[in-house]
């Protein structure tokens, strides 16, 4: 993802309220759009079947609403991103323009995928998400702020406590979410492990 070098302590953007619990990755990116060998074109297909009917006409959906065209922080309810492990899901939303998620809870693999891409997926209380959604429904203009250092999400002067797993939080703040390099540094120990594990040694 872009801007890998710098950490991300504060993310600002227009909120995009997307209501509903248990929104699965098949809804975020239907499988038929995964016939691709790069992630680049996926933005157009984010929530495709919720945004377009079978004739290709737009349905009533927040991501079709002109007033929210600049939205970049997706507000969601519980267990967002459940189902398949497809990284295509956060990738599609990223390519559509999403730069962060605020929700009551996230499915585990989805949260991990967001972390791999440097996208914060922070948890807030049920009341907080209700209020934040209300604010953004009433008026698309307010800028939301996700502050990872201080641990809050704010809108229109009100701040709500927000959290995410500590490892993810530190990775985002320090700009180290792309862990390949860090993992490579353990290479010597990995080689030793390879020689030691009973099932790789042929149980000798």
């Amino acid at each position: 993802m872009a801007d890998k070098s710098a950490g991300r302590s504060v993310i600002k953007g227009m909120g995009l309220p997307l209501m509903g619990n248990d929104i699965d990755t098949d809804r975020i990116i239907p499988a038929r759009f995964m016939k691709c060998v790069t992630f680049d074109g996926l933005g157009a297909y984010a929530f495709f079947d919720e945004r377009y009917d079978v004739n290709g006409d737009q349905k009533d959906h927040i991501m079709n609403d002109e007033r929210y065209a600049e939205g970049s922080i997706l507000l969601v309810n519980k267990n967002f991103g459940c189902g398949s492990s497809r990284e295509h899901a956060p990738q599609a939303l990223y390519h559509w323009g999403i730069r962060g998620f605020v929700g009551e809870s996230f499915a585990e693999i989805f949260a991990g995928n967001c972390n791999s891409l440097g996208l914060p997926a922070v948890r807030v209380s049920r009341e907080a998400i209700g209020k934040l959604m209300e604010i953004c429904m009433a008026n698309p203009s307010p800028v939301l702020t996700i502050d990872l250092k201080e641990g809050y999400v704010s809108a229109e002067g009100t701040a709500f406590p927000a959290s995410l797993p500590e490892g993810y939080r530190r990775a985002l703040i320090e700009g180290t979410w792309d862990v390949t390099q860090t993992l490579l540094e353990g290479s010597g120990e990995v080689d030793r492990k390879y020689r030691e594990l009973p099932y790789l040694r042929g149980f000798t």
Binding site: F39, S84, S85, R86, E87, H88, I109, G112, N113, S116, L117, P165, G167, D178, V179, T180, T182, L183, L184, G186, S187, V190, Y194
Partner: peptide
């Protein structure tokens, strides 16, 4: 367990993952 594509890359490159 299932993983995302960036983690597939990490296993290919290092045979390891960063996990909680």
């Amino acid at each position: 367990f299932g993983i995302g594509t960036s983690q597939v890359r990490d296993i290919l490159a290092t045979q390891t993952l960063a996990l909680n």
